[in-house]
Simulated assay, not measured.
Amino acid sequence: MIVILFRILIFIALALLIYTWVQYYRNPQRRLLIAKAEHKFYFLDEPNNSKKNVQFVYKGCLFEGEKYVGTTEDAFEVVNIHVTVKDSLELRGLTRDDLYFLEKEILIRYPYADIEWKHPINKLFIMD
C-alpha cells in the first residue's frame, strides 16, 4: 500500500514539474527579456485588454506604451498610445529611423492610434 502511494506521489511531482517547466517556457515576459538581451524586436501585448500596457523591445531598449481607448467613426478603439522608455540610458544608438520603424509596427497593430513619444524620446523628433 505504501509503495503504491509513493508511486502516485512521484507521478504527481513529475506532472507538477513538467507543468511548471512548460509555464516557464511559455512566459511572454521571459521572451521579452530574451529579446532584450539579444537586441531583437519583440512586441508584447494583449490586444483585447485595453487596460494592459503594451511593451516592446528594440535594439536592447525596453519601451512601454499606455493605451487609451476612444471613439472612432465606427467603434471604440485604442486612439492614443503614450510611449515611454524604462531606462533612458538604453536609448544610446537609436536613430530617428528606428523610431519610425517602431511607430510603423505600433500602427500595424493599432491603426487608429496617435502615438505620443514621452521625454526623452520626443527630443529626437524635435532636433533637426
Rank of each mutant, 00 (worst) to 15 (best):
I81G: 01
L9F: 14
I8K: 14
K36Q: 11
L94W: 06
N49I: 02
I2W: 15
I10T: 06
M1I: 11
C61T: 13
G60R: 09
V69M: 11
C61Y: 04
K123V: 00
H39W: 05
E90F: 07
E77L: 01
I126Y: 15
S50W: 15
I115P: 05
L17H: 12
L32D: 00
D98C: 03
R31V: 00
A113L: 05
M127I: 06
I34G: 02
L17M: 10
R26F: 14
I34T: 06
M1S: 11
N122L: 08
T72Q: 09
L16F: 15
F56Q: 01
L14G: 04
D114I: 11
L62K: 13
L44S: 08
K59H: 07
I12Q: 09
I4C: 09
Q29M: 12
I121F: 07
A13S: 12
I4H: 14
V79W: 05
I8C: 10
E46S: 10
H39K: 13
F41T: 01
I121A: 06
A75W: 12
T95M: 07
M127W: 12
R96N: 08
R92F: 13
P111H: 05
A13K: 13
K52W: 05
V54W: 11
Q29T: 09
E38M: 11
E38G: 03
L94G: 01
I10R: 15
M1P: 05
I108T: 07
R7K: 13
G70T: 04
A35G: 03
E64N: 09
I4Y: 15
K36D: 00
P120Y: 05
Q29P: 00
G93R: 10
Q55C: 07
L124G: 00
D114A: 13
H119Y: 13
I126L: 10
K36P: 08
I115C: 02
Y68M: 09
N53S: 11
I108P: 01
F6H: 07
D98W: 10
L124C: 00
Q23A: 14
I106G: 01
I121G: 03
G93Q: 03
L17I: 07
F63K: 07
E105F: 02
V57H: 04
F43C: 04
R26N: 14
I18W: 10
I18E: 10
K36W: 01
D45K: 09
G70D: 03
E77F: 07
